[in-house]
C-alpha cells in the first residue's frame, strides 16, 4: 500500500548516512507509515533520540526533532511530554544507547508509564562507535571488545520492559515490515509507555564479525529465528531458545503519568483554595 513518505521525511537530507542494507531504514519507513495511518500532523510530533546510528533517524524526520546525549533521550522526552502533554513524543533508540548508558532512564520511564513511545532498534551491537558488545549481544558472539567471544549475559528487552512497568510491549523484526508497522501503530496509539523492540541487522559491525557479512543473510537468519506469538504459546521453553517471539506481547491498563499529575493538580488547587 502506498502512502506519502514525503510528509514525514526531510527530503533535502537524503541520502541516509546508514550502510546500504541497514535495518534502520526499514524501521524508519514503518514508523512513517504508522504516523500516516494515524493521521498525525508533523507539528504535533516530537521525536527524540540519543547517540548512535539509530539516533540519526531524528535528523531525517520532518517534525520537532531533538538529537541529545548518549543514552539520555528519555530524560529530554520526559520534559517535553510534561510541558506539552497534548503532543506525541517518540523516542528512537539503539540497544547500546538506551539499555546501557541509558538503562536507568529506561526503567524509570517504564515505571512512570508516561505516554512516550520507544522504538528500540536492537541490532545487538554498538554500530557507530565501532562494533563493541552491547547489553543485548548474545553470549559467545564476537565484537570489537569481545575478540574471544562475549562473556556478558544479555537483557531480554521485553521482559525488562514488562517488569519495569511499561504498559505496551511488542517485538517485531526488520524481516517483516507489515507486522512492524502494525506494532508501531498500536504502540503510538497506546496511552502510556510503549516499547517496540525491533530485531534488526547490523551486518557491518555485528555480521562481519559473526559470519553474516551480507544484509540479506542477516535478515533471512532473523526471519528463520522468528516465531509468532500464537505459535510460541504452543511451544516448550527449550524449543524457543535462540528464537525471536514476535507480536504484541504485553498490554496493561495503568494510569498515565501526565494524566495522574493533572489529577493531583486539581486536588492541590482545591486544597489550596479551601485554605484560602
Amino acid at each position: 500500500m502506498s502512502f506519502d513518505y514525503g510528509k514525514y521525511i526531510r527530503m533535502e537530507k537524503m541520502p541516509f548516512l546508514w550502510c546500504p542494507g541497514c535495518g534502520i531504514g526499514i524501521v524508519a519507513k514503518a514508523l512513517y507509515k504508522a504516523f500516516a495511518d494515524l493521521g498525525w500532523e508533523n507539528n504535533d510530533i516530537a521525536m527524540v533520540s540519543g547517540i548512535g546510528c539509530t539516533s540519526r533517524v531524528t535528523g531525517y524526520t520532518n517534525c520537532n526533532t531533538l538529537h541529545t546525549t548518549h543514552g539520555r533521550a528519555l530524560t529530554f522526552a520526559t520534559g517535553i511530554k510534561i510541558a506539552r502533554p497534548d503532543k506525541h513524543v517518540v523516542v528512537m533508540a539503539g540497544d547500546g544507547d538506551i539499555l546501557a548508558i541509558g538503562g536507568n532512564h529506561f526503567i524509570h520511564s517504564c515505571r512512570r508509564n508516561i505516554d512516550i513511545t520507544v522504538i528500540l532498534n536492537n541490532n545487538h551491537i554498538y554500530g557507530m562507535t565501532g562494533g563493541q558488545y552491547s547489553p543485548t549481544t548474545p553470549q559467545g558472539a564476537y565484537a570489537a571488545t569481545a575478540p574471544y567471544g562475549n562473556v556478558d549475559p544479555c537483557f531480554d528487552v521485553v521482559e525488562l520492559s514488562k517488569a519495569a512497568g511499561a504498559t505496551y510491549v511488542a517485538r517485531g523484526t526488520v524481516a517483516n515490515a507489515v507486522l512492524l508497522e502494525k506494532l508501531i501503530r498500536n504502540g503510538l496509539a497506546h496511552r502510556g509507555f510503549s516499547v517496540i523492540e525491533v530485531i534488526s541487522n547490523c551486518h557491518t559491525q555485528f555480521g562481519r564479525r559473526n559470519r553474516q557479512p551480507e544484509a540479506m543473510q542477516m535478515i533471512n537468519e532473523i526471519k528463520e529465528r522468528t516465531v509468532p506469538l500464537a505459535r510460541a504459546e504452543k511451544m516448550q521453553p527449550e524449543e524457543l531458545y535462540g528464537k525471536f517471539v514476535v507480536g504484541e506481547l504485553y498490554r496493561a491498563n495503568r494510569p498515565e503519568y501526565t494524566e495522574e499529575y493533572e489529577r493531583m493538580r486539581k486536588k492541590a488547587l482545591a486544597k489550596h483554595q479551601t485554605k484560602g
Binding site: L66, R72, T75, I80, A83, K87, A268
Partner: peptide
C-alpha cells in the same frame, strides 16, 4: 501545581538536567 506548572523528581541528576532542557524546548 498551583502556578500551572509541573514538578518531577527524576531518577538521577543527569536526567533532571535533560528534562529541563526538553521542557524548555517545548
Amino acid at each position: 501545581p498551583l502556578y500551572g506548572g509541573s514538578f518531577i523528581q527524576m531518577e538521577d541528576e543527569i536526567a533532571a538536567m535533560g528534562a529541563v532542557i526538553g521542557a524548555s524546548l517545548a
